[in-house]
Design a binder for these strands. Structure first.
Length: 262
DNA sequence: AAGGCGGGGAT
DNA sequence: ATCCCAGCCTT
């Protein structure tokens, strides 16, 4: 849930999710569509599909969630960050969970303002590892993430109250300078969000999620339901979007009707 | 290496 | 209005 989604918005969903799926056995036994339904409001619905698969594969291949990086990485939805996060926060092992916060904090601390980038991802990672205190990875990761989320923020960092100010290569950062450097790097202006396929996909899945379990909806009815929210140009592309969603394992076609994939 | 994938809070 | 978020997977 925390992959590209802010902590404050995850917490209530996470609590609800654990009520419905309190352990890996329950998750493994649950229909995929149940997991996708429980995911409402979180976005990036493919993560729900991967989590459902994660549950099944853990039970099938490992019984319990493994601790080794290689084994974790072999599971669906588990990349470099998530594998390290499980090791650090669930198992108290020494590792670096390099998320967007740690990346930004480390860059600023050791190399200066991150626009333009002054170090490769690999170098950033090695730099953070060199700072990791043995036996205190949980505190280390937690502290730097919180620092990044509250003080060393992406937009307007609060260097004046930062405990690392004196040791920081970037401090004090002026918000306007940060903005200017960032703008200088920008290439093409992004499209209006409501006219993106991304928006339409989200509306489609949300409509299917609202269906009674087991029920489906025809293409025509679906387009009718989306008419108020989605541009006409995008409405024509709903069939293609449904195919994409089907390929992603989110949607299932049943004859002329569409539903969440079981 | 680049592009796709959501939704909502913060500024 | 725009930015950004405890990334991952596919091409």
């Amino acid at each position: 849930m925390l992959q590209q989604t802010q902590v404050d918005r995850v917490i209530p969903r996470y609590v609800q999710f654990l009520e419905r799926f309190p352990n890996i056995e329950t998750l493994a036994a649950a229909p995929r569509a149940d997991v996708v339904r429980a995911w409402r409001g979180l976005g990036y619905n493919a993560r729900a599909v991967r989590l459902a698969e994660f549950g099944r594969e853990v039970q099938e291949r490992f019984v319990r969630i493994p601790q080794e990086t290689e084994a974790l990485r072999s599971l669906p939805g588990v990349g470099p960050y998530t594998a390290a996060a499980i090791r650090v926060f669930a198992f108290e092992l020494d590792d670096v969970a390099m998320d967007t916060n740690l990346r930004r904090v480390t860059h600023r601390l050791k190399f200066g303002i991150e626009y333009p980038p002054l170090a490769s991802a690999r170098t950033i990672d090695e730099t953070a590892r060199a700072l990791l205190p043995r036996g205190n990875a949980h505190d280390f990761n937690s502290a730097l993430m919180d620092l990044g989320a509250t003080i060393c923020t992406a937009r307007a960092p609060k260097c004046l109250v930062c405990p690392l100010r004196d040791a920081c290569a970037a401090a004090p950062i002026s918000a306007s300078v940060l903005d200017a450097r960032k703008r200088r790097m920008r290439v093409a202006p992004p499209a209006r969000f409501r006219s993106t396929t991304r928006f339409a996909r989200g509306r489609i899945v949300d409509r299917l999620r609202a269906l009674p379990p087991g029920a489906g909806i025809s293409l025509l009815d679906l387009q009718r339901a989306l008419d108020a929210d989605v541009d006409a140009a995008l409405l024509e592309r709903v069939p293609a979007l449904l195919s994409d969603l089907e390929a992603d394992g989110i949607v299932q076609r049943r004859g002329e009707a569409y539903a969440l994939s079981e």
